[in-house]
């Protein structure tokens, strides 16, 4: 590919909204309305819900709810999204690796990607000698709900796969939070995060490889979080990301 010479050529290199044009100091009408359309879709995505039966069929998982009874309460009360609803019970499995699949702020990406990621992750963990507990699906859930679930299972570590806040360009992004020795009260500084897992972002294979590296390093260190630096050699870059829009 020849080096670009025109402003609009920049679009070949990024999915970001570059080279939109300029009318006076403002956006041309088409670019302005493209933005409005994307925002409208993202707003609708926040209110999307997880298709729990479909996910359960794919994962064979236990389903639990957070203490947030509905979406609006979930948005205003993150403390409730971190806690389990009354009555949730688990069969303890001391020393296991727990996997939680949570809707978070947008269910779309989790719905699409969690089954394949859980399968690949489970295989990798078992190969590394882990006893992997059956996954748990959590609805109206925040990341820290994994602490309560992990503690109830007696898990050595928990990975929470959770829908990330929808952006204008990505309605389907998932993150993974890894926490060693989970229990309520863990802070975000005690977790490691892998974000932007989606088509066009971090691939499932890259995410699983990175997570398995973090799990091994965390087992050696006996901790996750800022004490565990992600010093994994950088993965080879994918040339020419699908850019333009």
């Amino acid at each position: 590919m020849s080096a670009p010479t025109l402003w609009r050529d920049l679009r070949r290199f990024t999915a970001a909204r570059v080279a939109l044009g300029r009318v006076g100091n403002g956006l041309p009408t088409a670019a302005h309305l493209d933005f409005q359309e994307a925002h409208a879709q993202a707003r609708d995505a926040v209110w999307s819900t997880l298709d729990v039966p479909a996910l359960q069929a794919a994962l064979g998982a236990q389903v639990v709810a957070s203490a947030a009874p509905d979406r609006r309460t979930y948005l205003l009360r993150p403390d409730l999204g971190r806690r389990l609803a009354e009555g949730a019970s688990f069969t303890p499995r001391p020393g296991c690796f727990a996997i939680v699949v949570a809707d978070g702020l947008c269910a779309t990406g989790v719905q699409a990607q969690a089954p394949a990621l859980v399968a690949s992750l489970t295989t990798g963990l078992q190969r590394a000698g882990w006893d992997v507990a059956p996954p748990v699906i959590a609805t109206q859930a925040r990341v820290a709900i994994g602490d309560a679930i992990g503690q109830a299972l007696g898990a050595a570590m928990v990975a929470v796969l959770i829908g990330e806040r929808p952006g204008l360009s990505a309605l389907d992004s998932m993150g993974i939070y890894l926490t060693h020795a989970p229990r309520p009260g863990r802070t975000d500084a005690e977790r490691n995060c892998i974000s932007n897992i989606r088509p066009g972002g971090l691939s499932l294979a890259e995410a699983v490889a990175k997570l398995l590296w973090l799990v091994a390093a965390a087992r050696g260190l006996g901790a996750t979080g800022v004490a565990l630096k992600d010093e994994q050699p950088a993965l080879p870059l994918i040339e020419d990301q699908p850019g333009g829009r």
Binding site: T14, A16, R17, R22, F35, G167, S169, A170, S173
Partner: peptide, 22 residues
């Protein structure tokens, strides 16, 4: 200043380069 006000990594909207010019 974010291209088109859309941060594709952090998934939020900030001010755009155009907003700065404005």
């Amino acid at each position: 200043g974010v291209p088109g006000a859309d941060d594709t990594m952090l998934a939020y909207q900030s001010t755009s380069f155009h907003d700065g010019l404005f």
